[in-house]
Amino acid sequence: MTTTTAPAKTQTAEERTHRNRKIRSRLFMAFLFVAAIVWIIPMVWMFSLSLTPNDILQLDTTNLLPQSPTLENFGDVISVGLTPRWFLNSVVVTGVTTLFTLILSAMAGYAFARIDFKGKKFAYPLVLAGLMVPKEAMFVPLFLMFAEVGQHNTYHALALPRIAAPLGVFIMTQFFTAIPNEVEEAARVDGATRWKTFTNIMLPMAAPALTALAIFTFVLTWNDFLWPLVSATQREMFTITTGLASLQGNFAQATELGALMARGVVASLPLLILFIIFQRQLIRGISIGSGGKG
């Protein structure tokens, strides 16, 4: 008798703790869900205000769903002011920066990872040392350098300092080092030059690392603030980030809140779209880029 009842008893107790644990886990998930929704409210609010007519916003700005939604604020973005031009500037500068970062980082990374050459022991630490130079610290001497040759308010002045960042080289070196030797040796035996093996074999293999680096670079460049603020001082040369900042803090904003928020939406849209499509690559870019692992 006892031998048959005892296991049954423990089983119900086990079931009970199992059920308790399940309920607790559900409650915890519900809590996290609410927290995440609250977390995202400020962004939802921006979207809501951008879709609300300005005369309604003069009375009430606290709705999370747009009242009598309209696209007139977005019409305002196109027809009033320089926002389209700033957007274009950002597209050009970010595009050029990302493209050149990829090409130059991949080339340099390949050399550091796959070729034994004279001066490597000196050159690689020199590049790594650059990782310690904080992005925002050296804008004053950089400003002077471009001013001396009269090159401010140009696209290349906005792009070049960002391309000089050594993080991409570090990431690509790490990636190329991890590729087994046999892959490259097979091609070299067939008489392919370094350049051929690089473009035909190594680059295609590096596609995942390059995508991660591209997304990461794109986000950082699009959001650059201090250098564009210092270098591009003519209104036509503002990027969307500095342009949007220049619109804040003046008195007109109280009446044109909707139009201002629509500009905020336009400024974040490319990144939000990229983020939705390439979330995994961006996250990979962050973890390789900061910790040196992927």
Partner: peptide
């Protein structure tokens, strides 16, 4: 998600 916003959008909000 908020990490991908630029500083100007952050301050706007």
């Amino acid at each position: 998600a908020p990490y991908v916003l630029s500083v100007a959008v952050l301050t706007l909000i």
